[in-house]
Design a protein around this nucleic acid. Structure first.
Lengths: 347, 347
DNA sequence: TTGAAAGCGCTAACAT
DNA sequence: ATGTTAGCGCTTTCAA
């Protein structure tokens, strides 16, 4: 691990490489940027870079070339596994083209999103990935107007076109509900997500659609408004369970909510899935780890992250590329938390 | 929201500001960097900056001044709430001095840490925060030797001195165990964390110490090696519960593990805390949200993040500052998952 | 294909 | 206190 050179690697510039390789520093720059250079010179430069341990100075590249090779990732919170999966996908794409990731966390603090967006877009990053943005209207117009490369992840329902990557949330809601119907359930409780978010509304719409397609009545009492968090789902589940005619299955709009339902159900001494079936959404890793394991509608989060990163690069390299909205398919993952109802409520 | 100037804000440089204010651009630079400038010129510059909407170009500052105003944060994974809390603390400090955060996620991929560290320290960031690092020996020597500012969060047990911020893990293990003893428990199961990590070993040491101080025997059968993850804790709990003389309380080395224990306990139809008490470690938000709520040893994560950021800035500004190891106190948070054992096992 | 020269926006000597 | 002059390390003209 000893350095061949007496000076430390961070001080190696293209000048050093050029001297070592016996070429001009512009030739070194060309090798770095894959421009036309004769085979033997390229070879020599490459060897010199390896020997000296050359590492590009991103600041200088950025200043001279106008690109920072950094993209920004804006999220509220890191704690949800959801973000981690997306970030993993983003990371993969970034690594492939050696981009770096700048993190902006709002930690749910109001107003911080806009402030970040304003600042970030004037500096430092070549593009911005906005995951599950809130109050997006405030700055989305500005981003679009200034043609600043950006992609939203998991956001629908805006009144205007914006580059985005999402999942088939409505289809997922439809598939999950249909599955429960197929098992024989007729009274299916539904706990919504945060309805200010498009994905939550879409899942609910899928639930309604499936019910309607199966000719089942839509009982408003079976729908309880949640917020994607466990405590609220716990309350919702209790509410549903207290109904004169309680549901035989509960479909929660995300896995975390499903865990809240599981708790409420167990709290009453009911068994899963014998007494009641539970269905989640997302398929976070914990879903496979709880007992019984959670049947859920899988969202391809890492793939969404990858797609978003790729789309963002498209915009970075072609600012005038058409606005595209990518929607990735959800998938029903059948595990152990659902089964046919104990006694059919069919007539 | 209209721009006063016809050109967009990101194109405004100190030259524009200087022209507008009628001063030389070095004066503008001095104002930006709080160097000595006469009151009226400073005033004019400030007004010009505001009018034009000047925003500094970080790349250029970095290239010219040698500081990027960015620090790197290296973590394995984002999904654990643990990281989010720490990041929140780091964020607070960063915001105060307008530094930015670059995120490096290894996603548990082997070797990625070293690669990042090698790359990052040669570029881009002024300092590095390493959260719960693994295989740190590989690059810590290099960081220290090159006097690259860095601080480890939550890592002990290395053979040499390294700047770090941690919590009183052993004391926490001691306090938790003592609490259970005070409640009357005599057979206390313990599920360890990943024992390659210092914090996990320290918590276990605290458990042993408390047992010993109370004159209780240390039964090796009551200790099961976990890895801070739920499935492993689930197995461990089953193992402990299968003992001829099972424990009346189980102390898990983190909250996530405690949730695994809860599942295993419930799976056997046992009640918490009536039949068995459960104690966690960390106090992630879910701990207060489960039913019954989890009694746990709180780690001041956000505060740790803040302290780490502050310490890092010390090193950035004074590379020769003494190596410091900050240890923050843990705190027992009593909730509902523990109570005296049903039938005392006392003679 | 290659080298020389200019300049990205800024900070930090160096003068005055 | 203020202006002038050099670069920081690189990309990108422009010639050759």
């Amino acid at each position: 691990m000893m350095q061949k050179s007496p000076i430390s690697p961070q001080d190696i510039t293209i000048y050093d490489v050029a001297r070592e390789a016996g070429v001009s520093y512009s030739t070194v720059s060309r090798v770095i940027n894959n421009k036309g250079v004769s085979a033997d010179k390229r070879e020599r430069v490459l060897r010199a870079m390896a020997e000296l341990g050359y590492v590009a100075n991103l600041q200088a590249r950025s200043l001279a070339g106008g690109k920072s090779h950094i993209i920004g990732l804006l999220v509220h919170s890191l704690s949800i596994e959801y973000f981690d999966e997306i970030a993993r996908g983003v990371d993969d794409e970034l690594a492939a083209i050696s981009y770096d990731l700048m993190l902006y966390t709002t930690h749910r603090r109001k107003g911080r999103e806009s402030a970040y967006v304003a600042k970030v877009t004037r500096n430092l990053v070549d593009g911005l990935l906005l995951v599950l943005p809130r109050n997006a209207e405030a700055y989305l117009q500005a981003l679009g107007h200034r043609r600043f490369p950006h992609v939203l992840v998991d956001h629908q329902g805006l009144g205007f076109d914006v580059p985005s990557v999402g999942a088939t949330n409505q289809q997922g809601g439809y598939d999950g509900t249909s599955y429960l119907i197929t098992l024989g359930h007729r009274r299916i409780g539904f706990i919504t997500g945060d309805l200010t978010l498009g994905c939550a509304r879409d899942r609910l719409a899928g639930y309604h659609e499936a019910l309607s397609d199966a000719g089942l009545p839509a009982d408003p009492a079976l729908i309880c408004e949640g917020n994607f968090l466990q405590p609220q789902a716990f309350s919702c589940a209790n509410e549903l369970l207290n109904l004169a005619e309680p549901p035989t299955a509960i479909f929660a709009s995300n896995d975390v909510s499903a865990f809240g339902v599981m708790e409420a159900v167990r709290n009453r001494g009911l068994r899963i899935p014998d007494d009641i079936s539970i269905l989640g959404f997302d398929d976070i890793s914990q879903a496979a780890q709880v007992h019984p394991s959670l049947t859920t509608v899988r969202q391809p989060l890492a793939e969404m992250g990858r797609a978003a990163a790729r789309l963002l690069f498209t915009y970075i390299n072609q600012p005038d590329a058409a606005i595209k909205q990518i929607v990735l398919p959800t998938e029903l993952i059948i595990r152990q938390s659902c089964q046919p109802p104990a006694k059919s409520t069919l007539a």
